[in-house]
Simulated scan of single mutants.
Amino acid sequence: MSYVASLPLHGADAQLLAVVVAIRAARTGVGNVTGQDLRSLRLADAEGAVAALTALGWQARGDLIAGSPDVPVGIAVPGLTDGGDHRLPFGKVMRSRVSGWTSRTLNAKPVKKTPPAARLAALFLAAHGRPYRPSVLPEDLPEHCRAALPDLLARNFLKELDGDTYLLGDAVRHVAGKRTAPVPTVRVPDEEEPVSWDVWKGEASVALRRHVEAVESCPLCGLSTARVSEAFMRKPVPAQADEKVRAAYAAWRENQSEPGPRAARFAADFRAAHGHGPSVKQLCQGISERKQPRRLRIYLVRQLIAEGWLTNTEPVPWTLRPGKAAAPSGTSAPRVRAS
């Protein structure tokens, strides 16, 4: 991806085509592409993209536009044939794997029907991304790709987008280019053995256990046992609200009409339907049209709690409910009991 970003190409169409050709030309300096391959990229201007590569000296040994769609056309890439120092470090097996990875990423459901700039951005982010941890936006990410990032967030290709950091969505973790080895479990003699989920619930109070069971068995949320247990058993870590988060909150607040009353009503309706309160993420999704980064969601809910529109039983998750400020309007949390 960095190799393509370094080329004097300015459009997403040409850059996306260059990625495919460069990967296929990595070992021999010649990449074979068919007319069907070109059409599958769904470029806005395929002829312009081919012309842009030709202007760089990439020579097609045939007619890629009007020729037979099934006949491979070799494209010679001078920068990959001028000696070993110029070749991409791919062996035969690695080249095939990278080519397959490119196809899987471009055809991932969240981006399959997006414009070329969004799919090119998806390749950059997947190549530099890790499956379960936030990653930093690559420095050589083209500007037209940066403009497509909100669309990738809205389509769930990205789970989080916070300034220059991002987290790949759950559905595309398998295409993450930077794999991290699992952290080995090291037993510290002075530490207690971690308890199992069943043991933890058995040691919880009656009221807490009822709440846990209401969340765990909620048919509307459909949460996995792993997700519920992780939320209840993890140690709370305070989220820092820096200037960027506060500025994002101020911008969000300016465009909202009565967010406090709406949040209180949503929390009350949610509890009545589910038998438990919403999570921070569920509440923010219920009162906002756009997805927000995790730190903004936490700060947003904290502000609503500070203003009295919401309250909760911190640090117990899924306990948000209307606060005292909502009482005059008649919005109150229904009393619910888990069966």
Rank of each mutant, 00 (worst) to 15 (best):
E289T: 14
V195N: 04
G222K: 09
P236I: 08
M94I: 05
A176Q: 05
I23R: 07
D151N: 09
K109F: 00
Q285F: 14
A247F: 02
E258V: 04
D164T: 07
S229W: 05
R294I: 01
A55F: 07
E289N: 06
S103W: 00
G277W: 01
R321Q: 15
V73K: 06
D164V: 07
E160Y: 02
W318K: 07
G48D: 12
Y132F: 13
V245D: 00
G323V: 00
F232R: 09
R210G: 15
L300Y: 15
H144Y: 13
L125K: 04
D162S: 10
D151L: 11
P89I: 04
R146M: 13
M1Q: 04
S339A: 12
W197V: 11
V212C: 11
E230D: 12
G177K: 04
A264I: 02
A204D: 13
L43N: 01
R39F: 08
T319F: 13
G222P: 13
G62I: 08
G323S: 10
L41E: 05
G222C: 07
P259N: 13
A46N: 10
V30N: 08
S279M: 00
G91S: 15
M1R: 13
N32K: 03
F266E: 02
E314A: 14
W318H: 12
A26R: 03
R27F: 01
G275H: 07
V316G: 08
A231D: 12
A241D: 12
F90T: 00
K159G: 09
S196T: 15
A171N: 05
D70N: 10
E160Q: 10
L137A: 05
A26F: 03
A272E: 12
S205G: 14
Y3C: 02
L141N: 00
A207I: 10
P328Y: 15
V172A: 08
A25F: 00
L43I: 04
A25N: 06
L56W: 12
M94A: 14
A52Q: 14
G286T: 12
D162H: 09
P293Y: 09
V175Q: 04
I305R: 15
I298F: 14
K178D: 06
D190S: 13
E254R: 05
E139D: 07
A273N: 05
R104K: 06
G62S: 14
P328L: 11
P182Y: 03
N255A: 15
G31I: 00
D63V: 09
R187M: 06
V33A: 08
D242Q: 11
R295L: 13
R133K: 13
A5T: 08
L296Y: 06
T54W: 05
D164C: 03
G74P: 04
R24V: 01
A268W: 09
P8K: 06
T34N: 05
A264D: 03
V77C: 09
L220A: 10
D70C: 03
V71E: 11
R294T: 03
P238H: 13
T311P: 06
A118V: 04
R297P: 01
A154H: 12
G222N: 06
T225P: 02
V19Q: 11
L300A: 15
L208M: 07
P115G: 06
G67P: 05
G48M: 03
K178G: 01
H144L: 14
A26E: 01
A273E: 15
A171W: 00
A338K: 01
